[in-house]
């Protein structure tokens, strides 16, 4: 059995890498990918906790159910994000986040 701490540590590291990507990179698509990594880290936490829940054989299926839900939502989110980028790209011919200051 893998200790739960290891799972959580891995999730934390991934989360950190994702945050770093969001702040450091200027390309919007990479930022969205970093968001995906963060989401994955979160989903991994859900699954890890569900599999270490009180029931020793099956764990607690609730966590897995939410993981599936989160995966579906994440996929939808990517679609919407990329859709916004494409619309934005059409109007600005560029998706560099540094220049995306029109909302100011």
């Amino acid at each position: 059995m893998i200790p739960l701490e290891y799972e959580l540590a891995l999730a934390g590291i991934l989360f950190g890498i994702g945050i770093f990507g969001i702040i450091y990179r200027k390309n919007a698509i990479i930022v969205l990918m970093s968001v995906e990594i963060i989401l994955n880290a979160a989903i991994m936490n859900l699954v890890a906790f569900s599999s270490y829940a009180i029931n020793p054989i099956t764990g607690d299926p609730g966590g897995q159910v939410f993981a599936v839900l989160a995966i579906a939502i994440a996929a939808g989110e990517v679609c919407i994000g990329l859709g916004i980028y494409i619309v934005y790209f059409r109007s600005r011919k560029d998706i560099n986040l540094e220049e995306a200051t029109r909302l100011r």
Binding site: L10, V47, T58, Q64, V68, I71, A74
Partner: peptide
């Protein structure tokens, strides 16, 4: 793969398919 190690094969499958 990590999900499979965590005995959550269904989530692993969904992860593969969707993600």
């Amino acid at each position: 793969g990590i999900y499979i190690l965590l005995k959550s094969e269904f989530v692993a499958l969904i992860q593969l398919l969707v993600y």
